[in-house]
Design a binder for these strands. Structure first.
Lengths: 223, 223
DNA sequence: GATAATTTTATGGCTTGCCTTATTATCATA
DNA sequence: TATGATAATAAGGCAAGCCATAAAATTATC
């Protein structure tokens, strides 16, 4: 109705908000950190998005997507994740790099291309990181899992999705086979937000809490 | 050696120069027209590209790509045309729209993705418009054909390539089945740069000289 | 309730890439 | 060689997005 194009930057801000999900409230500082810009820059952009009716910023309270903003963000996520599927399944790009390359492509994708791509891929419902691919109208339901960081010691679980987006982080997870579909056992949780000790495919290793928050699991019934 | 990234704009300028080919000398005004910017803007960008050692601008003489510029342009063309192949062959995007959509994607394509895409496509050598796909190092040999505009009346020829890039023009050609591989007969050429009369697949129609210059053919031996 | 920490704004500045208007330089041609 | 067309440049401006620095507003904490 109003804006034909949205700038790359604006799309990135919207996407970041959608990716953070309703779990953690969006704030200017959080956005700034995630997008690697200063708080001032983030604030400026949030103001612009607010003026465009894409987000609502209540100073000192938080930022939330409007319906219009949610749809726009869903569309970006759709493009992003469809490209992730293509890059991973058909071009055999390394798992850890898929997000970053898809991120470049997402802003350069015409609607016709998005839909033709979805068709080509067989209308997948999740990306290689396990996250849902929004429908054409931008809607999607969040992954039905809990963060690994909030799981109980001893639990055996299926890894559902990785919400991390940083290539270095993804590489770290990839190296430890912490990929969607794998089975994970939480062996130990150190006190004071300390690292978790995990077992994946017979190997044990430690994982920091921050990363554990970016991993969604579904606990499995103990044998 | 010098520049990691090249801006979208800079890539467009380089590509435009490469696409115009050695046939028509590149000038600021021609670039400006092709890119739909003012001559002043084109001049500014040419100056910047010159400073970066990508082109050589001899005022009042013309602009030419340096070795570095030719490689960069070849790389852009490679990405562009590989995407054209993908969009046409796999996503079944309408021929006339392929260029425009590929043009968006080309600037957002990491080298790893380019090469994986080439592999996926089976390392094609021409794009759907019939133009050569440069090698990894950016080199390519121009199409071995003559412009339809310079063909003799009565000639029967194979359409080799379309160098037009404007979607409207491409749509016009598509509607008349003036596509690579088709057989064309030049029935008549009106005087004073007037329109050509062509026959394609049994249908006759007129084609302006400007468009005829953007079509490369290979004359066939008369029966 | 005072103080510290966090958030938000206000200023001013930078770069890219575009614009308009106006002037100067060169070329081509009568 | 003068002249009109074409090409190049100069000058000043604009918008998007980023930056740093600094002041104000709010929240949280003691």
């Amino acid at each position: 109705m109003s804006d034909k194009h949205m700038s790359r930057s604006a799309e990135m801000y919207l996407k970041a908000m959608a990716e953070m999900g309703p779990r953690q409230a969006a704030t200017v500082s959080r956005l700034a950190e995630r997008l690697s810009v200063t708080q001032v820059s983030a604030n400026e952009m949030v103001r612009r998005l607010d003026e465009q009716g894409l987000v609502t910023h209540k100073p000192y309270k938080g930022i939330s997507l409007t319906l219009k903003g949610r749809q726009a963000a869903g569309n970006v996520l759709r493009r992003q994740r469809l490209w992730e599927c293509f890059l991973y399944d058909h071009l055999h790009i390394e798992w850890a790099h898929v997000y970053e390359f898809a991120c470049l492509l997402e802003h350069a994708t015409a609607p016709e291309v998005t839909e033709a791509l979805a068709e080509f891929l067989g209308n997948p419902t999740t990306c290689p990181r396990g996250n849902p691919i929004p429908a054409t109208d931008g809607t999607f339901s969040p992954v039905d899992g809990i963060p690994l960081s909030s799981a109980a010691v001893g639990v055996r679980a299926r890894l559902l999705a990785v919400t991390a987006t940083d290539t270095e982080v993804l590489k770290y997870l990839q190296d430890r086979h912490l990929l969607p579909g794998r089975e994970v056992i939480l062996r130990e949780s150190a006190p004071m937000q300390g690292p978790l000790t995990l077992e994946v495919e017979g190997r044990e290793f430690a994982l920091g809490m921050n990363m554990a928050e970016m991993i969604l699991i579904q606990p499995l019934a103990s044998h």
